[in-house]
Structure formats: structure tokens, C-alpha cells
């Protein structure tokens, strides 16, 4: 039954204007494709060209410079630290959002009184502007008079104020926490929607066969929501990696690059310095890395059979 869902119908009735049928998917996708190509093709190609150019905005001296932009990046002593932060930031944020989102979705699965209201409330963080959340976190985690320290002191968890945003390690932690806070509802909604689409009768049938809850979870639930999880994880990873607004607002990468990620570095250093060649080089590295990640991820999770 589970497999049924995956079945891709092939149009077989050739007598019915077969050629027209073959064109249908293209026609349906045409508006989307045209829009995306028009808007994304140029910047995409441009960024690959600029990556190999000396390209400072406003400077008349523009021309190819081989791998200079990449060399400039690798010459930065902090690159190792930045890459490490990037990986930690992405993995912790994605994993945190996923695990909490899944837990929340499972807890919300079965009806209970007041579920509607409860849901409307727990999903709210998603509706906030990132920079407002960032500001709020920066300010709540202020080491001297932030509400977090005050609360932890009152609860007896800490004895001395912690300079959250001024301490290596902690500053990245605050960013990740803010990221998770914003992103949990998204995972929860996606997974919950997938959970709700599992037909009841499958579980009934499994119960009659004597399957336990754990078995049911792994035999029925997981396979059913797997495609959703894969796509959501993939898209969120891309999105989280690329988003730097929280980082810029909360710590601006500090102290001393301890919470800097590669996209935030690209934004604050390269674009703000009008160095589009340098920025594009970083962009190309990011895009390549993400592409490789995407392909491996889809392969490992066996998703591509549906693509």
C-alpha cells in the first residue's frame, strides 16, 4: 500500500492525442520555468564569470584574474575557523529544528482539546522577521543586564553573569538557539501535514497483525513521511546555510570571527566592500558545495527515484 503512493502513472492511452499529452507537463510548468530562468539565469552565470574576475564595483579596472579571488579567500588565516563555525552552525541548527519539529509534530498528531489554539501559538515564531528575533536575542543575552542571565541567576543555575555574546563558542550558541527557535514550526508543520495523510486503515491492519507501537512507527510512519522529511531537510539546510541575517544582527560574526559563517563573511566582507569578484568566488564555492551535498544527500536517501 505504501508503495502505491509512489506509483507514477504513465499515460498509455495513445489514441487520445498522444503528442498533446506529451506536451502537457511542459505547458503546466512553463510559467514557473520561464519566470525562474529569466530571473536566476543571469545572476547565476554572472557569478560564475565574476568569480574569476577582478571586479570591484565602480572600478574601471575589470578583467579576468584567474584564481586570485579564491587565493584571497584561502589566504585568510581565519578560514579554517569560519568553515568550522559554518559546519557547526548548519548541523546544529538543522538537527535541532528537525528533532524538535518531529517531536512537536508527533505530540500534535492525535487530537486533543484545545489543539487548534495550541497550534496557532506554537507556530508563531515562524511568523517573526528574522532581524527582530535577532535583536531580541542579542538583547536578552546581554551579559550585564540581559533577561537570560537574570533568570538563570534567580533560578540558581549560574552564579556569575555570562558574557554570552562576547565569549567564543557561546556567541555561536546564541545564534543557533535563535535559528532553532524560528525554524521549529516549519518542520513541525511539514511533518504534521505528512503524518495526517497516512490513512488510518493501515494502522488498523497492522494492529490486527499484532504490530507494536515502535514497529508501527518504523514500518509505517517513517516510510510514509520520509519523502517529506528528505525534501524539508534538504531545503532547510540550503536555506539555513545561506541565511546570515541572524548572524549579522546578533554578533556580526564576533568576537574575532568565532561566530562567522562563510555566507555571512561573503556578505559583510565582500559585498560591503564592493568586491563582487571576491564575493562571487565565495558564492561559487558555496553553490558547488551545496550542489555536491544535494546530490549525495538525494542518492543516500534514495530520493532521486522519484525525480
Amino acid at each position: 500500500m505504501v508503495q502505491n503512493r509512489k506509483k507514477e502513472p504513465i499515460i498509455v492511452k495513445r489514441n487520445q492525442n498522444y503528442r498533446k499529452r506529451m506536451m502537457e507537463p511542459y505547458a503546466l510548468l512553463m510559467p514557473v520555468l520561464v519566470l525562474l530562468l529569466v530571473v536566476f539565469a543571469v545572476p547565476l552565470i554572472n557569478s560564475f564569470i565574476m568569480a574569476f574576475q577582478k571586479y570591484r564595483l565602480g572600478s574601471p579596472d575589470i578583467g579576468f584574474n584567474g584564481l586570485d579571488n579564491f587565493r584571497k579567500l584561502f589566504a585568510d588565516d581565519d578560514l579554517g575557523l569560519i568553515l568550522k563555525n559554518t559546519v557547526i552552525y548548519v548541523i546544529c541548527s538543522v538537527a535541532g529544528q528537525f528533532v524538535l519539529g518531529l517531536t512537536l509534530a508527533l505530540a500534535l498528531w492525535k487530537k486533543f482539546k484545545g489543539r487548534g489554539i495550541y497550534q496557532s501559538v506554537v507556530f508563531l515564531p515562524w511568523a517573526f522577521s528574522a532581524f527582530v528575533v535577532g535583536l531580541m536575542f542579542r538583547w536578552s543575552f546581554n551579559g550585564e543586564y540581559g533577561v537570560v542571565n537574570d533568570l538563570l541567576m534567580k533560578l540558581g543555575v549560574i552564579k556569575e553573569n555570562i558574557a554570552w555574546l562576547g565569549t567564543p563558542g557561546y556567541s555561536l550558541f546564541v545564534i543557533i538557539l535563535a535559528m532553532i527557535w524560528i525554524g521549529v514550526p516549519f518542520f513541525a508543520i511539514m511533518i504534521l501535514a505528512a503524518l495526517q495523510s497516512i490513512p488510518e486503515d493501515i494502522y488498523e491492519a497492522a494492529s490486527i497483525d499484532g504490530a507494536g507501537a515502535v514497529k508501527k512507527f518504523f514500518r509505517i510512519t517513517v516510510p510514509y513521511i520520509k519523502p517529506t522529511i528528505i525534501m524539508t531537510l534538504l531545503l532547510r539546510t540550503i536555506w539555513i546555510l545561506n541565511s546570515f541575517d541572524l548572524i549579522v544582527v546578533i554578533t556580526n560574526g564576533g568576537p574575532a570571527n568565532y561566530s562567522m559563517t562563510l555566507p555571512a563573511y561573503m556578505y559583510t566582507r565582500a559585498f560591503s566592500g564592493y568586491d563582487f569578484g571576491f564575493a562571487s568566488a565565495i558564492g561559487v564555492i558555496l553553490m558547488t558545495a551545496l550542489m555536491v551535498y544535494t546530490l549525495i544527500f538525494l542518492k543516500v536517501t534514495n530520493y532521486e527515484e522519484g525525480m
Partner: peptide, 15 residues
């Protein structure tokens, strides 16, 4: 579709 999600926003906005 996935690649479009990876392009830096500012590069899309300018053109």
C-alpha cells in the same frame, strides 16, 4: 529549482 535556492540574494536583486 534547488540551485535557485543557493544563489546569493543580492546577486538576484541587482539585475
Amino acid at each position: 529549482f534547488l540551485v535557485t535556492q543557493m544563489v546569493p540574494g543580492i546577486l538576484v536583486i541587482i539585475p
